[in-house]
Design a binder for these strands. Structure first.
Lengths: 286, 286
DNA sequence: TAGATTGTTAATCGATTAACAATC
DNA sequence: TAGATTGTTAATCGATTAACAATC
């Protein structure tokens, strides 16, 4: 990996990059930052019901966390509660919004207007949180000119001009995986410093650029892992006996496997893995 | 929260629920499980290029992690490498696939066929990893009967029959937020034990049911937080002086705010938060 | 044998949690 | 004042990382 460049985090794991650099902005831990939107959503719902105050216990339940964690999280923001009373809903909405930077306008561009790009363009959560779709972009001439969510799809060639004129700092990549790094490079060169990547591609970006990744396939695979375990508790596992054996036996087995041929070593049980034939295709077609 | 029920994790944070129960299945930490799909993807790419072996350093770079973490992760699976040589690509693909449960077929149902449901139905990453779309379901009569990704959209009424006859254990929710819990309950009652939730709703499920959440809005908000900090390092922050003051002063300020009126406490600087007027609308319309 | 690379150890770090003093 | 609830402390837990002995 080249110096001065870092690869992105996945959204599943407490990203290594963020943990290393002093990204605990103003001392707020990453784990806390990731929960602030949850609290904000719960508080907004309370606000709409005109609930004036809420206790840490109530709010924690609504947000799906425990109250100790919530109070700890809020302690990083300041002392915004009142002992014996709870938190003022409106005031807390404001404070968290401000902390997250949602009191300002964030123009974003979406690159790659297939099914997923369309879905995102129409996503209500964008507009309602200060995010504004500045432009939809695609490289495909048959897509350019179409309308999505009331906006025209514009050609990639306009990217740089749009980013500059509208001061876009956030880009969303919904291209096929093969185009993602190239699009990312162009976004970064144009001045974008935060990227939300839906393509199943590891992006390399310069220091100072944040990347977050959303990967549908990974989420499903994690579910499958746990699902398999549930099933395994009832019936027997279908693992190879050798693979489950103590260290020395396993090592010997590995040796045998390798001796059988390097380039196309056969799995011990001869059961080929599914899905190895092709890498994930595009997040959305064209 | 009712006993025997738990709320879901978000995919952003190491979920509290999973950490509490002995979900370290067979001793594999959650953080490691979440990275296995990344390794698998990188290995699959190497496999397609017919690369026979790979070192932890090379594979780690391809997957976007560091090599110490990768070796530690693999150590939970067993000793599948060869000192001085590296890992056999094909064999590791098989082992990780098996560990994740991808050597078997996973029928899934997608409920809510709007833009996002469409995008997921067409998502190539489903089929290529052992996930098979068993059915697309929607409650809207004007959507039922349409075709998406070569499959007919069927009515919600058929949910139970489909889940049972096709042994569906994984459900994907892409409905508007208001319908999500209800759909979740039906899925669980029908026998689904893993749910991937795209609706911005905290789902409550019985013990034994896994929920993972993908939330586009939350990802963007986290990016905005970091983006704001970058900008703040150059110009001055627009924080209230009182809010940045030491504890006692802040406490006094909070007291003043509350005294000003409970139900509609005015933010100190009188700058109302954007986006508080309405909760996030549907993930996709209708 | 010499070089390369794994698998593991131990130290460090960050996140979670329970408990309770502070205080409304 | 008595009850309620916050904000903080300290203990615990899990994840990361560097380093290196084992060993191919």
């Amino acid at each position: 990996m080249a110096i001065g460049r870092s690869t992105q985090s996945t959204s599943q794991t407490p990203e290594p990059g963020a943990a290393r650099r002093p990204s605990r902005a103003r001392g707020i831990p990453e784990a806390t930052v990731a929960r602030l939107p949850l609290y904000l959503r719960a508080l907004t719902a309370l606000s709409e019901r005109s609930v004036p105050t809420v206790s840490s216990e109530e709010l924690a339940t609504a947000a799906g966390v425990n109250s100790a964690k919530l109070r700890k999280d809020f302690s990083y923001l300041g002392s915004y509660g009142t002992r014996g009373v709870g938190y003022d809903v409106e005031y807390l909405v404001y404070q968290i919004s401000r902390e997250l930077g949602l009191t300002q306008d964030w123009p974003v561009v979406i690159v790659g207007i297939g099914n997923l790009g369309h879905a995102l363009a129409n996503y209500g959560g964008f507009a309602s949180r200060g995010f504004r779709v500045a432009a939809l972009l695609d490289a495909d001439p048959t897509v350019v000119g179409n309308s999505a969510a009331g906006l025209p799809v514009r050609h990639m060639d306009e990217l740089e001009a749009i980013v500059e004129s509208q001061h876009v700092s956030i880009g969303v990549i919904t291209t096929p995986p093969g185009a993602a790094q190239q699009v990312c490079d162009r976004l970064v060169d144009a001045g974008v410093t935060s990227i939300l990547n839906f393509a199943p591609t590891v992006l390399t970006v310069p220091d100072g650029v944040d990347v977050r990744k959303v990967d549908l396939s990974i989420e499903l695979q994690i579910l499958a892992f746990h699902e398999q375990r549930k099933a395994g508790e009832e019936s027997g596992h279908n693992d190879s006996v050798l693979d489950r054996a103590p260290g020395p036996v396993r090592a010997a087995a590995a040796k045998l496997r390798r001796a059988a041929g390097a380039a196309k070593a056969e799995p011990v049980k001869g059961k080929p893995a599914k899905g190895t034939e092709g890498e994930l295709s595009a997040v959305m077609p064209a």
